Simulated assay, not measured.
Amino acid sequence: MEHFIDVAPGVRLWAEERGAAGAPPLLLIMGAQASGTGWPEELVDALAVHHRVIRYDHRDTGRSTWAFDERPYPVTALADDAIAVLDGLGVARAHVVGLSLGGMLAQLLIADHPGRLLSATLMGTCALSTTPYTRPDGTPGELPGIAPEVLEMWSRPVEDRGAEAELERRVEHWRVLAGGLLPFDAEYFRALERRIIAHTGHYRAGTAHGRADDSGMLRTAALAATDVPVLVTSAPAEPVFPPPHARHLAQAVRGARVVEIPGMGHALPREVHGPLAAAILAHTAGRRS
């Protein structure tokens, strides 16, 4: 079932529900510049066996309002949008699953709206905390940065060279984000992006989230004191926030536990759908009301 939800003056978001209406709600929060249809159908279906799964398009993605140039907003507004989506669908409390920027937005929800969350799963993200990272041997450590090949691709200007060229740019982006431990299925990601472009109605690449003000996002004290049950996925091939970031999240977020998804990078290929769904469902089990 599809919806359009007014979340702010002049801002309307597309959302979709899947699964039994009476099942415990689970909100999927995508990463920067990513449509909600970036969540693979197979993964959504697996989660919908036990949940009322809600996915939505951020502002300036998919079928939601594209108006950053006329009405700029900070990144924190995207977390407010997530709460507005729940409000618009009459959901008092939900499990949340956030990927990349979505994982940061989920942390803002943990800190600022803990009463609205049944649990949270954080994927491919970093801690919104000044808590120092401690290596497994107990010594202080530094967190690794983004892989050079990712930075190089992100540094390239995105030019309109037509629909097929944009499609191939996106596939190459997924190749770099996948991390290289699993075989890369270009046709799978090409089909995914074709669905996203068809859903959006155009192939224009968004840039709003990269230009939005990202200040005021640290939540060190609130994350260290939370009672929200938190699962952190560790991806061994992760090129954006390599595995020490998952361990750091578990150190920064009270009670968080870590589960490794074999072969996973910063993408969601077929091979990770089963293990990822199993990890999320095991985390939400017993917390479904």
Rank of each mutant, 00 (worst) to 15 (best):
A84K: 01
V85L: 01
D87H: 07
G88A: 05
G88R: 12
G88W: 09
V91M: 15
V91E: 05
A92C: 14
R93L: 09
A94R: 14
H95A: 02
V96A: 08
V97K: 01
G98W: 06
G98I: 11
L99E: 15
L99P: 12
L99Y: 15
G102R: 08
G103H: 02
G103C: 07
L105Q: 10
Q107M: 05
Q107H: 04
L108K: 06
L108W: 09
L108G: 08
L108A: 08
L109N: 06
I110A: 10
I110K: 08
D112A: 12
D112K: 09
D112M: 11
D112V: 11
D112H: 11
H113K: 12
H113L: 08
P114S: 02
P114D: 00
P114N: 03
P114G: 04
G115M: 13
R116G: 12
R116H: 10
R116K: 14
L117Y: 13
L117S: 13
L118E: 04
L118K: 03
S119P: 10
S119E: 00
T121L: 01
T121N: 01
T121Y: 00
L122T: 05
T125P: 14
C126H: 15
C126V: 15
A127V: 04
A127L: 00
S129Y: 03
S129H: 02
T130P: 06
T131W: 02
Y133M: 04
R135W: 00
G138M: 07
T139S: 03
T139L: 03
P140Y: 08
P140C: 10
G141F: 07
G141I: 11
E142A: 15
P148Y: 04
E149Q: 15
E149Y: 14
V150S: 00
V150A: 02
E152T: 14
E152P: 02
M153V: 13
W154N: 03
W154I: 09
S155M: 05
S155V: 05
P157R: 02
V158S: 03
D160I: 03
R161M: 08
R161T: 10
G162T: 06
G162P: 03
A163V: 13
A163I: 13
E164F: 11
A165M: 04
E166K: 11
E166A: 11
L167Q: 02
V171I: 02
E172T: 13
E172H: 13
H173I: 12
R175T: 00
V176R: 10
L177M: 13
G179F: 07
G180H: 11
L181I: 08
L182W: 14
P183I: 07
P183K: 08
P183E: 05
P183D: 04
F184M: 05
E187K: 09
Y188M: 08
Y188P: 11
R190S: 00
R190V: 09
A191R: 15
L192R: 14
L192I: 12
R195G: 07
R195V: 08
I196Y: 00
A198T: 14
A198Q: 13
H199W: 03
G201S: 00
H202R: 08
Y203Q: 01
Y203R: 06
A205S: 13
T207W: 06
T207G: 04
A208W: 06
H209Y: 02
A212K: 03
A212R: 01
A212L: 02
S215Y: 05
S215R: 12
S215A: 09
G216S: 00
M217F: 05
L218C: 04
R219A: 02
R219W: 09
A225F: 09
